[in-house]
Design a protein around this nucleic acid. Sequence first.
DNA 1: CAGCAAATTGACAGCGCTGTCATCTGGCGC
DNA 2: GCGCCAGATGACAGCGCTGTCAATTTGCTG
Lengths: 336, 336
Amino acid sequence: MRVRLEDVARAAGVSPKTVSRVLNDEANVTARTREKVRAAIEAMGYRPHPSARSLASNRSFLVATLYDNPSSNYLTEILGGVLEACDQHRYSMLVRPLDVNAADFVARVDAFISHHRPEGLVLTPPITDHAALLARLHERGVRYASVSPIERAGRIGAFMDEPLAARQMVEHLLALGHRRIAHVVGHPAHGASRWRLDGYRAALHAAGMSCDPALVVQGDFSFGSGVTAARALFSLPRDRGPTAVFAANDDMAAGVIWTAGEHGLAVPRDVSVCGFDDTPIAHQIWPALTTVHQPSHDMGRIAALQLLEVLRGRGEGAMVQVPFALRVRESTAPAA
Amino acid sequence: MRVRLEDVARAAGVSPKTVSRVLNDEANVTARTREKVRAAIEAMGYRPHPSARSLASNRSFLVATLYDNPSSNYLTEILGGVLEACDQHRYSMLVRPLDVNAADFVARVDAFISHHRPEGLVLTPPITDHAALLARLHERGVRYASVSPIERAGRIGAFMDEPLAARQMVEHLLALGHRRIAHVVGHPAHGASRWRLDGYRAALHAAGMSCDPALVVQGDFSFGSGVTAARALFSLPRDRGPTAVFAANDDMAAGVIWTAGEHGLAVPRDVSVCGFDDTPIAHQIWPALTTVHQPSHDMGRIAALQLLEVLRGRGEGAMVQVPFALRVRESTAPAA
DNA sequence: CAGCAAATTGACAGCGCTGTCATCTGGCGC
DNA sequence: GCGCCAGATGACAGCGCTGTCAATTTGCTG
């Protein structure tokens, strides 16, 4: 049988409850006692039993990350960040893929929570803005943090100034002399789509330019939608078509580059293309993609830390802004 | 307070222990009693408390998936499969990213196990073949299943006939009339690298051809290593260089295609390129990549099911072979 | 140095379930 | 019709920890 808290207590010459206090960083333990207990724990290689802790304290020490996101790179980054935060506070992390469009979406999350009883959730787009789910979570009193939610008021988590990033991306194209700049919009359900479109418009507007509706094409963040959008753009009459395309994410940008080849256009000589997110595909295509680097790992980590702050009763949590960075690579060049 | 087992027992007019038996599918309960209890559970929406179960039965109902794999697509697929299997048997899944090259690799896994106490592990390449870790797991009596391990003897999990898949891929190139076929080898630590090289050699050998050492270049599964390898290949004298390149995975194949552009070679007109794995990048590049589809989700699921069979005392588990499929797309064409 | 409040420590019960073992029940042979 | 056995059910303790509250010690103040 492995070493229990009681064994440590005996070895340290204190009561089990005192060992428990040391373990949980509770107040009202003298430094001397604390040290004595720490030494005993160390010497005996003691590890608290998570289930016993959980049962006695009525806490699960579990955080669950909910997602319905086709981008596994983004996801892996976020999960890694959340995991890092959980490890730091000795919480475990559960993951839960979901179909946000399923009729029983809320019921499924409900069942998941009832079964696993996580203390809190980390929500990722587009789950961050599912009104019915949020209502249900409030109803059940389940705490959560959000990564890049559309509505930030009264929420905790992490976000980036996406409109500004998109605007700077477009300003980069403007500085290269491009005047007919197209935008491939992302999936309507994601707040990011709106922000990036707003940033695109803001940049054009600030440059005193109007926004040609023919150059704004709807996509859905997938490679295929980038292809479809680009086919429409590259079929425009030469003098009305784009000299640069700003796609709302890297996958669509890759689709645009793919389609440029299909239409005999060289990137960046004939057309500049840029994306958003800096996923691995950005430097796995040719030419390497100019894009916006989004610190996904950090966003996951920071969102989880806000949640943990609340769960551990250490504070209120906050909606933390994280910095972005433009990554200028080979897919953008001066306008011909 | 939520409904407990005791409440269900009272409602069903049986003892708590009997409800427990029904819950755990134990023998020696009459069909009538079982039904009565099931009805009560259903009516009251009862959910067993995982921690209490775990504490009393000295089982954690936890499976952990260990990985150190740069490919997030592969990983996401595997994790999804393992999760599906765990859900099916009401187990929870933990994930653990690791650095297999870290000096304290085994110690870290050790600590992880001590802390979380999973009942079993699902190992993914290259962790599947870390001798020191496997030794430690046997020593501690920790059960595990493996996805695509190098050494299959006495192991449980899932695998694919990789040499055969690689061979068929090369036979596809031979059928297109290619004679100077290069191979970019994968990371030396992964068994897949060896199998794919073996399949490559077997195909050439079966066609009565010798294997030109200058056409076999070492890579490490990364996009960049594909670029480096391709630069070496495309710098060979025209009559000794390859007309087709078989890269051991899709990322390297993408790197090869990237480099072809750099060298003014059109794919597939001047050179055919194919990969392995059928990751999303395969149809996110231009031209779309001919590759081998690997059912990663199923492999994760099946490996986990073998493990669960053992953990639940329902059997011995097995090393299950899963089928592959050639996906012929646009990156391969008849030799000029 | 007595007297008191605050800080520290400990005793004890119980979290919700399952393992063990005792008890009960029904069906069968003679 | 009785005894017996296997199968079905239940009583009870306890898994390893923490919450509550009581007991004890410490540190001050006048």
